[in-house]
Design a protein around this nucleic acid. Structure first.
Lengths: 132, 132
DNA sequence: GAACGGTACTAGAACACATGGTACAGTGTG
DNA sequence: CACACTGTACCATGTGTTCTAGTACCGTTC
């Protein structure tokens, strides 16, 4: 399992792990049912404390990304979001709103934002259409 | 100047202010050159410490969103991003990447993500095309 | 000059982050 | 069964951020 961590970043280590795993799952690098590195192994690889990895894994489970089985390990969940449709749509709106506003202050025009999103989504259009 | 703050949120107060101002500017609610509420006034309105507002304003200035003039007040900047084109494009990519990955784990398909972004951008298509 | 701006300190409480260590319970395998 | 490995749950500690509180200084505006 490949995961890079930047200790220089202002983002907390455990959040970097959370997003790194999410990215690996979304890209298909980690398939559903696949086992993650153990808490102790990943901590050793990244040269950080096992408690920090455990915190990241707990967060990932609460988001429905992985399943933790005591004694066995952590595995990529089959289906993801445990949220209601209303909550899912609300969060998607917030994500889009944040993108648009931050991009606006980076001096990008709506057509430029639109192009960036479409380019990113079309990258994997030739796949099964499941993993962006 | 309308700004709502949620003390219950896990987001820091000063970051809520930063995003709130950014949103107001992006929506056109705050026009370029317009004066913001003073540090002390806004602090009183929101019932928080003036230092917290000052921190938010300092952050907004460092991002090129506003200009602070000692003794006069804070004003919405004319042009925004002080970053290089390379840095701007890098950040846009990161924003899009985050949106796509988080939306994926909310069980949204690429077409749904695409539709959400287009809907948000088309909302203001009838304007001059400057403020999303 | 007076009132109102931003700016800059100091100090402290509360919290988050990360580390280190220990211990316990469930799982899988030889 | 015994053993190694897994997640889980604590505790304690150090560090940094967030927020509050108070004070003070300097520039702008009228």
């Amino acid at each position: 399992m490949f995961l890079r961590i930047q200790p220089s970043s202002s983002d907390p280590l455990f959040e970097q792990i959370v997003f790194g795993v999410k990215r690996a799952v979304a890209s298909g690098e980690l398939a559903a049912g696949e086992r993650l590195d153990s808490v102790r192994d990943l901590a050793k690889q990244l040269a950080i404390n096992p408690n920090t990895v455990a915190k990241a894994y707990a967060e990932l489970e609460s988001q429905g990304v992985i399943v933790r089985r005591q004694g066995a390990g952590c595995f990529v969940a089959e289906r993801s979001s445990p949220l209601s449709d209303r909550e899912r749509n609300k969060r998607l709106s917030q994500l889009v709103e944040r993108l648009v506003i931050e991009a606006f202050h980076l001096d990008f025009s709506p057509p430029e934002i639109r192009a960036a999103v479409l380019a990113r989504l079309d990258l994997h259009a030739s796949d099964q259409g499941t993993s962006p």
